[in-house]
Design a protein around this nucleic acid. Sequence first.
DNA 1: CCACGTTGTGTTTTT
DNA 2: CACAACGTGG
Length: 718
Amino acid sequence: MEELNPEQLKVVTTTEGALLVLAGAGSGKTKSIIFRTAYLINHLKVRPWNLLVVTFTNKAAKELKNRLENTFNIYTHNLWIGTFHSICTRILRREKDFLPFNANFSIYDAADQKNVFKKVFKALDIDTKRFPINQVINNISKQKNSLIRAEDFFLFNEQNYYTEIVEKVYRQYQKTLLENNSLDFDDLLLFTAFLFDENESLIEKYANLFKYVMVDEYQDTNYAQFKIINYIAKRHGNICVVGDDDQAIYSWRGANIKNILNFEKDYKNVVKIKLEQNYRSTENILNLANSLIQNNSQRFEKNLWSNIKSNLMPDLMVVENEHDEAKFVADELLKLKLEENINFVNSVILYRTNAQSRVFEKIFVNKNIKYQIVGGVNFYQRKEIKDIIAYLRILVNPQDNESLLRIINFPTRGIGKKTEQRLLDRAVALEINLFTAISSLPKEKDSKQFSPKIIKFAEQLSSWQIISKENTIIYLIEQILADTGILKKYENSDDIQDISRSENLYEFMTAASEFTEQFEEDFQRKPELSDFLQSITLHTDLDSYNENADSVKLMTMHNAKGLEFENVFVVGLEDGLLPHSRSLENDNAMEEERRLLYVAITRAKKRLVLTYTRFRRIYDFAEPTFPSRFLSELDEKYINKISAHFYDFQAPRHKQRAKKNVVLESKKCFRIGQTVNHIKFGKGKILSVEGDGKEAKLTISFSTGMLKKIMGNFIELI
DNA sequence: CCACGTTGTGTTTTT
DNA sequence: CACAACGTGG
């Protein structure tokens, strides 16, 4: 306890009643939560299972558990620690009797979700041009996060041609999920909240169980999450929330910053504690961050300070294009390694969009710099992994038609669209699910209508289901891969992509066996297949990355929340990227973009380098860019501006890529550089020609500044 | 029924 | 450019 400063100590020992902790970046927030948990258990003798601790990521939960075990000798396997989603899943499985689905439900990720939506759109014959599918998905997700169910839709939304369609889709979508005994991520929260709303006895039960409640990153909770916690904690009022309004970066997924701003109104006699000393960053870095964030309007008054002195000044670097940017960062890293013997392990590159990682990857491979990309395409979202997961899902949850349809003809076993329809018809006629419709075939007398291929598949399904109940997970996976020939097919292929797929499948088996080991240690029993499936759908890349490996980490600024690094490179600081173009018109969104940069900067302990480019390739063309407007808000006292002129780049500038359709000069009607006229767009210059004759596709830069691709037919030469 | 080629379309951030 | 959806020939 001597390690704690007076404010932190107060957080730890104020256990009764409602507590609001406003914890600035690097102020020892995690430490306070750990000590508080340990204090409750070891000092006040609270039973571990009477505590509920909600963290933002699985990784944070895992770390918390480890520290409690290693430093405080606390058995953590009966402690309720986890993300909202994993805790809700646990509650839903326990309280299945109160729910319309059973405990074997599948959890659909974003990709599964989109597939269902596509089917719903088709079934309802909705025009995706007028109703963009992603927009509708987003809308419905927002409804769910605000605890608005399909049947209550018009109580909260005005009726017009658009909302009428959304409501229809919402209804049909939920109906389909229910038929599949499946939930999406938002449903995990929604159903838990309504579980409490509709069953007084359950509120009683969980309020009694969770005598003390703690929520981390409270500024990024949404309404559904607020309600869930409120149901549990409002009776006894023993709730401690920790957060920083300046680090709220998830409003786009329904998080409401008002949850933390209004906490003092939601609970009685709230004690408010501010943690304002930053133990992470140097004074220069912190002052720089402060000069940025003070431009935001909606925030608690605070004074975050650091007394870590350093001669190092944050750098701002301007470079020609994204290749030079990557090259500059790579060279800086190599320089640090060579001159100051600093390893890659404590360095990170932070960017706004996942797509920005590609250039860095390329150059790091080139220069032999070890790196890890955290996030982006999740391991469990890869095609080959989703395929094997689909096999496993239908064995746990035979109602999961979506998963079954995914693999009904993968690998190809001669079940095409026609046969698929016949099987679906059979299921509907007999009022059974597709799984049963298939697996019951061999016992049927009329099975001769179906080809031996399908009978074989049916027999396989049955045999796997038996294995899934009697054998280990890893054995089941091996068996499925062998019976279907999937692994062999990939291994024997000449395509490098297939080889990599086979490697991923091996990695999946490793993951399964590691999971089994860990689970047995944690819970002292063998895991069910459903335990495994639950853990992987709620798993994120961040949860498992190796932070100690001597490699540079690459991730989005969102993923960096809660982390810290010695050396931080924040790249792509251009208008349109950060702030992102889709946030430009909206004041609230702009403030969130600013907070995002604030989060990125405050990850740095010692070295901070910010970069932006003059040109960046978007689609196919290098376009001129403008420095992020946030850069002008940074206090010049705390930043060192470096110009690209001082840096010797060898990389070729703006190399023109060869066009695919090269046409003989003699056949051309149009040539690059010619001035032309268009009826609507006026005068312009030809920038490129694809194809020949009048049919050629021309890229024309019009005098209005517009860039267009137009057929030669519509163009007249001047 | 399937493999392959062509056309069209679209990019924020994630549990 | 990168990937998904569609169409065609085997």
